[in-house]
Design a protein around this nucleic acid. Structure first.
Lengths: 190, 190, 190, 190
DNA sequence: AATGAATGAGAATTCATTCAT
DNA sequence: AATGAATGAATTCTCATTCAT
């Protein structure tokens, strides 16, 4: 395992990977990524020992960034619906701004090149949100189901919602609001 | 006349593609598919001119089959919630039985090798279900949103639900029921 | 060796071969030829056992046709320069009319798929012209050289001449005349 | 800096291409060329992006070499016939020594894989010789024709002559001398 | 550590030829 | 005999990874 000297170069490679994978799918050649990052083909391999390593790191990195975004302004003291609404909004807005990253994660998520370990690490970061959601479900239909399931439903509805927001930007605000209402009724209603 | 092109062989190739792609991802080599289908490497190309063509045909075929499954016992006369429930159940159960096909569609859906045309044809088959769903939304939070959005939410929640049903088979029935309730509250509640 | 039933089909295949090879070179697939000829892919092989066989037959056929053209109106009784001039003109004009055949022969001639046997048979047909040429050389610089050499020079100059006639059609007549004069001086002058 | 691209390797590949193409025609596989050149199959493609590129480069290279040979000892000050004779001799002798290259150029010249650009570049190198030839024609039958035509006739007669020199090596000297005389009478006689 | 040339195992086609109909 | 699907060896080119500089 190499001890990369420059954090900048690593970031440049990850950013280039996002761009290239978004354009051409995760089967795009590493050489293209290196070129976009402005480094030599071989250099990529001192930062990521294999392409699969790059794929896995990239997956974790993007998930981490998403969590960061959701966390940055998280109103820990607010009431439950407000907190849920905050998470919803941060998630959806992050997805709209980071179209490429979202596209790439979608491909990585269904790829068998992402290991179970990576998936575990990536989802661990969202535990806090899930336990929050659990609270909200106390009286809902899903009260007996694991928090991860509610989290999955939030993500599922949010992803569907983003697709429509992107397709009809003029109605984006309505979609965002209606999507959250739908989610909230789904999981929290008495 | 020479040997006629065989529908059986075409089906064998599609079935082999499902198996191989489920195992190794859609980047698996065509040679493997031909071998599993029991035909020569070149034969695949008399049925599908390119690998992309195979991918697109496969996508449409699986979607068609799913629709077939949802349609076969569709209770046109039943009340709305029953019809929605029927669709839900057929969809979810099809996904549980056809694990490989579901896995492959998931990859195809995010791949840019599937053309817009193919996507259009594939989703056209579900128009009927969507208009049915629209009825159910008449009084819900989504009443002003397009039926396709409600369809997307159904699919989204169903997919999340299937994942948990497969992870915890013992609780499968509860998940299926709770998932539908969640969906119904999300879209139909007053 | 097959006993083809229809001479027509054989000719159609040879004509199609000329067209296809002229367009795409002699590496063009046999399937294309069959299609242009209006027969099935496999049928080609009842008329020509292999592609090489087709190539060789085609070479001989075209050479035969060229000889035919040169022979049809050959003025056996005329004086030597007139006979040589006749040969020249027939050759050059045949080449201008049969652009495709000329192009194909050019490729076949340098291909190692044409056997020595085929070459021998093809050139045998031109013996008469060569012995005629020999007469014309009696007093020329080439008087001690084999008639085949003079024949080769005629062909060489004629081919160069045709290229320019095709490039500058307006000057075609001058080229044809000047070319022959050049040839005649080359071989026949005292 | 990494290993620099090696001119030696490029030359080895071109030399190997000559050998392999002379043996088996220009349809010989690139893998054979790489092997003969002593490099990996993929390496060929770092020097020539496609097989067609190799073909075109090879064509230009051989033509350049031929011109070089004709130029190296070109007696600019000598009288016209001597200069023409020099060109003739250099050309013919180059062809006799470089049998393989001559064979390969013959195939390349009639192949449609050689682009018009390549042909233009390759023939540009011979402009000087052609303008020299033009002088020699001042009083000949071809005086009104373009110098390229005279050049083409020289080449045509020379090629025919080489064939006979190779077939009858014992008479090579006579052929070379007679061939030039024939050419000279063809184009320069009053 | 950085570079990019070198490597060689694939991968998707292609195509002459065979053979069931 | 005619048809065209079936065959599978062969071909060009790609690309992750290694390694000389």
């Amino acid at each position: 395992m190499a001890r990369p000297r420059s954090e900048d170069k690593r970031n440049a490679l990850l950013a280039a990977a996002v761009q290239v994978f978004a354009e051409d799918g995760i089967s795009a050649p590493t050489a293209r990524i290196a070129k976009v990052a402005g480094v030599a083909e071989g250099t990529l391999f001192t930062y990521f020992s294999t392409k699969d390593e790059l794929l896995n790191q990239l997956y974790m990195e993007i998930k981490r960034e998403l969590r960061e975004a959701m966390l940055s302004t998280y109103p820990r003291a607010a009431d439950i619906k407000q907190r849920a609404s905050h998470v919803w909004r941060e998630y959806v807005d992050w997805g709209l701004v980071n179209v490429d990253k979202r596209k790439v994660v979608a491909q990585l998520a269904v790829s068998d090149r992402i290991t179970d370990d990576t998936r575990a690490v990536a989802s661990a970061g969202f535990a806090e949100f899930q336990s929050m959601l659990q609270e909200s479900m106390a009286k809902g239909v899903l009260r007996e189901h694991p928090p991860a399931y509610v989290g999955a439903i939030l993500v599922a509805i949010a992803e569907a919602t983003m697709d429509f927001m992107l397709k009809e930007p003029a109605a984006a605000d309505q979609y965002r609001a209606a999507g959250f209402e739908a989610f909230w009724r789904a999981v929290a209603s008495a």
